[in-house]
Design a protein around this nucleic acid. Structure first.
Lengths: 203, 203
DNA sequence: ATACATTGTTGACAATGGCTACTTAGGCGC
DNA sequence: GCGCCTAAGTAGCCATTGTCAACAATGTAT
């Protein structure tokens, strides 16, 4: 991780290094409330150096959130089966990957959804965040065309899917899906209920 | 609220006053990251006075969260129709009240779900939090008995309901339910999808 | 070579904020 | 009255942090 010999005065690629270090810290810690100074410390530079690459802390956070959306989309794409048995199967696999991303990257996920003074809205309307949403939309659209998903306004179905998946992710991250409340396989159960609700009963 | 003339040296009921003041602040601000000093300031006492009634800040936060659960349960009970047209109607009304509670009390709701170093689990297993969950369970149970809700393990159905409702609440609080993504009535759509998923198709 | 822009370093400011002593006010039993 | 307990006030420690200003090193174009 740390470069070996007598760090040259100029890092060379500190911007990237700061981002990488911050992502590392998000991996380690539970929350995204790291300090810029700590990032600098871990990156092996002085505490003010990051300011040469980011106007302020919020800028770094926004950048990290965007990277989070990119990675989430990649996760979802990777989880999409190439030859799905059914659309319901596909939807389930993608949803599972979504929740897994959240539990694997709790701090990053929280950051992506933390309303930094109402800026969350803007972030979520960015192209890179919409790309994640489009994965869901595309599946629903295809399902409607194929007849396996109810023909309802697709935005509403997307709302249901997003809401349930986001909710389960948050609950999972917070460790609240304890068997006392939701049994032993809450995610399976929730997803199958969702799929029932979205699915066309005629099929 | 504020006692009138020349505050006596001893407040008399500072514990309650601190809680009330903190609840006021939660109503005003978006987050629950108020400072104890600010609470004391608003309550009109010195910044150290609260420590006579709460060992530390976390204790106050826990107390507030519990009150939140109490109020949420009351809201749900109040929303439960006395003579519901159907169980689906009842479920929808209660769910709507849940989300409304969240959007009406965003900071308090966030506090209730903020994992203060993994203590969220304990809080949510407390009797007063479980009482909220029981409202959902009871409706599902009754629905299963009446045959209008699918006969599936009830914990799984509760997971789906909780997940979707909590998710929609969080999205609503964060202002993310914008029409560009989820259309004009996302909550309606999501709840009807949920009800479809939970409902017994035979009926 | 030399000027200039870039990128890092050092140091400090200002605000914050939880928490802890120690001191004072006041009520209550005796 | 007297002493004691509780509740409140005052003062401050101590650590943290975002940010900025001034300075130093390095690379680059002329």
């Amino acid at each position: 991780m740390q470069d070996a010999p007598s760090r040259p005065y100029h890092h060379g690629d500190l911007r990237r290094a700061v981002i990488e270090t911050a992502l590392d810290m998000l991996r380690d810690e539970k929350g995204w409330q790291f300090t810029l100074r700590e990032v600098a410390r871990r990156a092996g530079v002085s505490h003010a150096a990051p300011y040469k690459h980011f106007p302020d802390k919020a800028a770094l956070l926004a950048e990290l959130a965007m990277i989070g959306f990119d990675r989430l989309r990649e996760s979802l794409s990777a989880a999409k089966p190439t030859a799905p048995k059914s659309l319901r199967d596909e939807l389930t696999k993608v949803a599972r990957a979504y929740v897994a991303f959240g539990t694997d990257n709790p701090a990053l996920y929280r950051l992506m959804y933390s309303a930094e003074e109402g800026q969350a809205v803007g972030i979520h309307l960015d192209e890179r965040a919409l790309a994640v949403f489009d994965v869901l939309l595309e599946i629903l659209r295809r399902g409607q065309d194929a007849g396996s998903i109810r023909k309802r306004p697709i935005e509403g179905q997307a709302a249901a899917g997003w809401g349930l998946i986001h909710g389960m992710t948050m609950l999972a991250i917070d460790g609240l899906l304890v068997s006392e409340k939701v049994g032993s396989a809450p995610l399976d159960a929730a997803l199958s209920t969702l799929v029932e609700g979205l699915g066309n009963p005629a099929t």
